[in-house]
């Protein structure tokens, strides 16, 4: 019982440190730039407009409420990419701390993820505005936090693994950027995968496909996905989270000397 209390206390301390670090990093990113916070919105928005135009020109099969479909997929993917990309180098960026202070390195991985949550919230607000514009019932957006929770667990699991690998492999960042590029096209962000194709069956193995399609089904199209599918996705998110954390914990004692 004592052990559990101590563990919870440690987790709470780590979370509070991560939050402080995330706030500081978020402030730093906005430092001095005139557009500041608006730059976060400008980037996905501009990309969205380009894709919207391309989608309209290229694809013949019109997807119902395409702008909503595209925007939601895009901001979810961007969140995944931003967090994982910076996770690859999070340990070396903070090597000064890790080598000279007794600090829990998990805090840096968590802080890294949290700082992008702030900008993601802004993007969701814009998405809500879009929803109103399209006359979609905003109430379904309330389901998003639940989906996002599991999505976040999955991303954390990947972050912890990448952070650990990134200590030993300095060009992991480059490798991951290539993987990210591949995932962008492999995931149905700006297109729709027709069912009963080989591509569709392969997509089952792409976690991003699941999170984006579940979100879209619930929020935009007002359909409840298969319960078994959602249940499986949540279980797998939890497994990936603990797997990543396990890899991190096993290696963290060696970080100080390898950095």
């Amino acid at each position: 019982m004592e052990q559990i209390k101590i563990l919870l206390k440690n987790i709470q301390k780590t979370l509070s440190l991560s939050f402080s670090l995330a706030v500081a990093q978020f402030k730093l990113r906005n430092e001095g730039s005139y557009l500041g916070i608006f730059w976060y919105l400008l980037e996905p928005l501009s990309f969205f407009i380009i894709l919207l135009f391309l989608g309209g020109v290229i694809s013949n099969n019109s997807i119902d409420k395409y702008p909503l479909y595209l925007f939601l997929g895009l901001i979810m993917y961007n969140f995944f990419l931003a967090v994982t990309n910076s996770a690859t180098s999070v340990m070396s960026s903070n090597s000064g701390f890790i080598k000279s202070i007794k600090i829990k390195p998990e805090a840096f991985v968590l802080a890294n993820a949290f700082q992008f949550v702030f900008s993601h919230i802004f993007e969701i607000i814009i998405f809500a505005v879009f929803m109103v514009f399209y006359g979609v019932n905003l109430a379904f957006l309330l389901f998003y936090p639940v989906i996002f929770f599991f999505f976040f667990l999955f991303i954390l699991g990947v972050s912890f693994t990448l952070a650990t690998l990134g200590v030993y492999l300095i060009d992991l960042n480059n490798i991951w950027q290539v993987i990210g590029r591949f995932l962008f096209f492999a995931t149905p962000i700006f297109y729709l995968i027709p069912k009963n194709t080989w591509f569709f069956s392969l997509s089952v193995f792409n976690p991003l496909y699941h999170y984006t399609s579940i979100s879209r089904d619930i929020i935009i199209y007002d359909t409840l996905p298969v319960f078994r599918g959602m249940f499986l996705v949540s279980i797998i998110s939890i497994i990936i989270f603990f797997a990543g954390l396990y890899i991190f914990e096993k290696n963290k004692s060696k970080f100080a000397e390898k950095l």
Binding site: L17, S20, A24, L28, G96, F97, I101, I103
Partner: peptide
């Protein structure tokens, strides 16, 4: 260590304290 030059003194005190 932990001092972030682009933040204010106040913000740095709170950050260092957390660290």
């Amino acid at each position: 260590l932990g001092l972030m030059p682009k933040l204010t003194m106040r913000e740095n005190i709170f950050l260092s304290g957390s660290i």
